[in-house]
């Protein structure tokens, strides 16, 4: 009973801390400079990007090299909808997400039966093919791309609020997904797919759901990014750099952890901004850091720390005698089954 009270109190404390952090984050535009707001905005976008890549690579065992497909779709959907059809930006983000989701369903039917690196390369080639298609498509401005007229004059803080909400949503979705039955099946598949299948888990469906969620939110992030950039252009929108960023964020922070991508995104944006004055050096350093992390701390910074100290932030571990919030499951005590 005592431990129960304690864990109850620590849950409340955690909850209060979380509220404070979120309120602080929402207050950034009221005290921070334009640069600070932009910094936090980028961190939020990359948290979302990282979470979604992690959902695929870290949990569903799908090392995607094609997240830029959805970034590009998100950016272009927003541009086309707002420029040509006068659709409000917010709605444009959602519709772009739905289009991306539709595409991911189509791709899933084609690509999900592939294993490991076949899947990786196929997603990447699909993105490369989209570059060629969009660069030759007059409707979307071919190689020059499109200006998103409606975002002119929009303050950075507005886009920041959107990004913050999206980042929070990605974290919440990943946590809830992992704690749901879907998450249980997902981790089972990751650990051993044939055993998962003979235990009744439908591998295709489980992975499909992950692809859909990941594509929707990645596309929304793409839309947000191009709201801040104003100009969407095929070679940048469908560039592999998006996946590179997602991968670094997840690998450095801790693949297969919920908190890892948050830390990873902060490090990534910080290094990128700080090193940008030295030209290409930032990418070289990021690449070397990622390789070193894979070699010497394969679980990333947070994953390694968690292993060492035996705790897990936002854990999806199921206990036989209590729920995720620490509430004991009573019926077990008297169970005579």
């Amino acid at each position: 009973m005592k431990t129960n009270l304690l864990s109850g109190r620590s849950t409340i404390l955690k909850f209060i801390a979380l509220i404070i952090v979120i309120v602080a984050l929402f207050s950034v535009p009221s005290w921070g400079s334009q640069y600070t707001v932009m910094f936090f905005m980028l961190v939020c976008m990359y948290i979302g990007l990282g979470q979604m890549w992690n959902l695929l690579a870290g949990y569903a065992g799908l090392v995607s090299l094609g997240q830029q497909i959805y970034i590009g779709i998100g950016g272009y959907a927003l541009a086309v909808l707002s420029n040509y059809y006068g659709v409000p930006l917010f709605l444009g983000l959602i519709i772009g997400g739905l289009v991306a989701m539709l595409i991911s369903v189509g791709l899933s039917y084609l690509l999900l039966r592939m294993k490991g690196m076949y899947f990786a390369v196929a997603t990447w080639i699909t993105a490369e093919a989209l570059i060629v298609i969009f660069a030759g498509w007059n409707y979307v401005g071919s190689g020059n791309g499109m200006f998103i007229k409606a975002v002119r004059g929009m303050p950075t803080s507005t886009i920041y609020y959107y990004s913050l909400v999206v980042a929070i949503i990605t974290v919440i979705i990943v946590v809830f997904l992992l704690r749901s039955k879907l998450g249980l099946g997902l981790i089972a598949i990751r650990d051993n797919d044939s055993a998962a299948e003979t235990s009744g888990v439908n591998i295709f469906k489980t992975k499909l759901y992950c692809m859909m969620i990941s594509s929707f939110l990645t596309s929304v992030i793409g839309g947000l990014f191009y709201m801040s950039q104003v100009w969407v252009q095929p070679y940048a929108a469908f560039a592999i750099n998006w996946t590179i960023a997602g991968m670094f964020i997840v690998v450095i922070g801790g693949i297969g952890t919920v908190s890892g991508p948050i830390l990873g995104a902060i490090i990534y944006v910080f290094l990128n901004q700080y090193l940008s004055q030295f030209g290409g050096i930032s990418m070289i350093i990021l690449g070397i850091i990622a390789i070193l992390v894979i070699l010497f701390a394969s679980k990333g910074i947070l994953g390694t720390i968690q292993d060492k100290f035996g705790f897990e932030i936002l854990s999806a571990r199921r206990h036989s005698d209590r729920t995720f919030t620490g509430k004991p499951i009573e019926e077990l005590e008297g169970s005579n089954l």
Partner: peptide
């Protein structure tokens, strides 16, 4: 450790080589 780490290391190498050449 399975296919993913090698995939990611070679991907990391790709980034490093490209940017070194660029530099």
């Amino acid at each position: 450790k399975g296919a993913e780490p090698t995939l990611m290391i070679t991907f990391g190498l790709s980034i490093v080589i490209q940017n070194l050449l660029l530099y």
